[in-house]
Measured scan of single mutants.
Amino acid sequence: MAEQVALSRTQVCGILREELFQGDAFHQSDTHIFIIMGASGDLAKKKIYPTIWWLFRDGLLPENTFIVGYARSRLTVADIRKQSEPFFKATPEEKLKLEDFFARNSYVAGQYDDAASYQRLNSHMNALHLGSQANRLFYLALPPTVYEAVTKNIHESCMSQIGWNRIIVEKPFGRDLQSSDRLSNHISSLFREDQIYRIDHYLGKEMVQNLMVLRFANRIFGPIWNRDNIACVILTFKEPFGTEGRGGYFDEFGIIRDVMQNHLLQMLCLVAMEKPASTNSDDVRDEKVKVLKCISEVQANNVVLGQYVGNPDGEGEATKGYLDDPTVPRGSTTATFAAVVLYVENERWDGVPFILRCGKALNERKAEVRLQFHDVAGDIFHQQCKRNELVIRVQPNEAVYTKMMTKKPGMFFNPEESELDLTYGNRYKNVKLPDAYERLILDVFCGSQMHFVRSDELREAWRIFTPLLHQIELEKPKPIPYIYGSRGPTEADELMKRVGFQYEGTYKWVNP
């Protein structure tokens, strides 16, 4: 592979701008107003304001973009700056750019259920340069409990009458099928589907988006991507930290609602779906819905739930269990780990287990898709061969690698495990991989909904998990304890083995 010439960040961002501006969906010269509902909250200060700053800094926003914060707290732009700027990672050389960014910011205080507050917000936006005809993007960085009041008031008082209007809704989209349907029906009564952007930030990850290209742009994968060759698929999300004093919020939802029903299920769809007619948003989402419709409700015998306990040999936070978090209700049975087996009941995947695993306070930070292939028929190497695996590593250190057998150097035919490896950090030294939120917010500006969740996708996802969630809430089974920093409950490994996964433990990928 030829040595790549190092590029400056300015040059890299210039390439990104060229890609972005050559499309006809990006209205570079139009006025846009980006409204952050819930501007005083954690999500706004840690993710949304920093993301908008990065896009502005790199010249990736339309030229005439204004940012308006809205929340109940009586704040000023200076207050917003004070709480969000520490997350910007701005350099001293960017000081003038930073001043320009905050000059485009404003803030309006108001209630979430008060019509007069929204009329005041609308008047404020109209007073901005060309504000009355601007395109408006409303980001709901809010708890779902206020979605209905907020969307109703936005629709009645704050819509642009000339430009387009788009609304970005953060997960969780309800707690179960019934609450999700209620919320979807409410929002759909106010906005068209092409105006609604239900954001799952995992769909903005580079390697998640790469799944489609790997599958449908490489001839070698087509013939082997089926039940005849693939023994099982494992989708993993692991965090090495616990709730760390923020367990009160987590306890309301648990690990299945927080990660599995959305992030992991979306990745499953991209692995299992048929080739779409095109890369058009609805063509892709149509195929994802077909996959979900082929999955039956989760069966309790295919589920393992766990909850982390303190590690007596650990240090600091590792010595504390979930129930030691003062914000967690006493005696909570909320799971911090889950392993679930699903089956896609169609011709391509009949009988292939899709194993979804996620948890907190585990032994490493990792998100990946792992396809394990069947054993080689007619073994001539005296059971020395391990199964081939194709691994798409989402985070950290984005990579695609194939675990395969090669001859060990020497005189004899002794096979050993090795890999074919594409590590993004080595291959793409001159490429700026956008943060997931950067990519998705740019998608909203461009009107691309491919990486957002459609209402029928959402409904099918909740259909699969709601009976299990209701059973857990009714019966309150005690989750299996696992030690902070471990791989999780051993019962999860036993479940995976029972459905056909072979864990060798003899080879570990190392970032080159």
Rank of each mutant, 00 (worst) to 15 (best):
F173S: 04
A78W: 09
E156A: 11
H129V: 10
I234D: 06
E99I: 08
R166V: 03
G245W: 10
T151P: 05
A134R: 14
I187R: 00
Q83D: 06
E99T: 08
P223F: 04
K171T: 00
E252N: 14
R17V: 04
I167L: 11
E18P: 08
N153V: 05
I33Y: 14
E94M: 06
E63I: 11
V146C: 06
Y249S: 01
R17D: 15
W54V: 12
Q22T: 06
H124M: 10
N105E: 00
N229V: 09
M125F: 10
Q83T: 06
N153Y: 10
K46G: 06
H129W: 08
S8L: 05
A109Q: 06
E19Y: 12
N210G: 06
F250D: 00
H27Q: 11
F26G: 15
A44W: 00
A134Y: 12
T76P: 06
L98A: 05
K152N: 13
T145E: 04
L137A: 09
D24K: 07
G163K: 09
K89H: 07
V208F: 04
N185G: 11
I196T: 11
R227E: 07
L137I: 15
N229Y: 05
E193Q: 02
T236Y: 05
V146F: 10
L142H: 01
I154E: 00
T243P: 05
T65L: 05
A115V: 14
W54G: 10
F250V: 05
R182I: 10
N126F: 08
I67E: 01
G41S: 03
E63C: 04
I35V: 08
S29M: 09
A90G: 11
H201R: 00
R182H: 08
D42H: 05
H186L: 05
A71Q: 04
H201V: 00
N185W: 09
G242D: 15
Y107F: 12
E19C: 10
F26C: 02
D24P: 05
R198H: 05
V68S: 01
I67S: 02
F66M: 10
D114T: 04
I234E: 09
A141P: 00
N122T: 14
S29H: 11
V68R: 02
C232L: 13
I48P: 03
A25W: 12
A103F: 12
S123M: 13
T51R: 08
L235R: 02
L137H: 03
K238W: 01
A103V: 11
F66K: 13
I36G: 00
V169C: 06
A6L: 09
H186Q: 13
R246E: 01
D176L: 02
K152Q: 11
Q161R: 13
S123R: 13
R227F: 05
G14D: 15
G247V: 10
G204I: 02
Q28H: 08
D58G: 08
E99D: 09
D42N: 08
W53R: 00
F216H: 07
F138T: 11
W225I: 09
I154L: 13
M37C: 10
K82V: 14
R166T: 00
V169I: 12
F101Q: 00
S106R: 14
A149M: 14
E244W: 09
S188Q: 05
N126E: 07
R9Q: 11
A71N: 01
S84E: 10
L60H: 06
R175D: 08
H124D: 11
A231H: 04
I33E: 05
K46R: 11
K95C: 09
Q133H: 10
V146D: 02
G59F: 06
G245M: 10
I234Q: 14
L43V: 12
P50R: 09
E193Y: 00
D114W: 10
L214T: 08
G247M: 04
G41D: 02
L211D: 00
Y147H: 01
K171H: 02
F56C: 05
M125V: 14
S73N: 09
R246T: 01
H129K: 15
N135A: 11
D100A: 10
V150Y: 04
R57E: 04
F34K: 11
N153S: 12
T91V: 08
Q22I: 14
F221M: 12
R136Y: 14
V68N: 01
K152P: 04
I199D: 03
K45A: 05
T51N: 14
E18V: 03
S189Y: 07
N185I: 14
P50M: 09
A127T: 06
A231P: 04
S73L: 00
I256Q: 08
Q119R: 15
G248Y: 07
K46S: 04
A90N: 10
N218K: 02
L96H: 08
K47T: 02
P62K: 08
K97M: 09
G242S: 04
V233A: 08
V150T: 04
F241Y: 14
W164M: 07
Y202E: 04
K46L: 15
K171Q: 02
H201M: 00
E206D: 03
L20S: 12
G14A: 15
T145Y: 11
A116S: 15
S106Q: 14
A25L: 09
F26D: 12
V150L: 05
N126I: 11
V208N: 07
Q111V: 13
I48N: 01
L75G: 08
K205Y: 06
F138C: 06
E156M: 09
M212G: 04
L43T: 00
A127D: 15
L203A: 04
Q22F: 06
L98F: 04
S189F: 07
S184C: 14
K89G: 12
D181H: 09
T236E: 13
A109D: 08
Y249F: 14
F241R: 06
Q161N: 15
S84M: 14
I36R: 02
L96M: 10
I67V: 13
G204Q: 02
S29F: 15
A71S: 09
P86G: 06
D114N: 08
G247N: 07
N210I: 02
Y107I: 06
A109T: 09
R17K: 10
R57W: 01
D194L: 10
K47G: 02
P240H: 12
S180M: 05
G69V: 01
C158W: 06
E193K: 02
T31A: 14
N122S: 10
R9Y: 13
A90Q: 10
S160A: 11
N135I: 05
Y112H: 06
M125I: 12
S157Q: 12
K97N: 03
A217G: 15
V108F: 13
G59R: 03
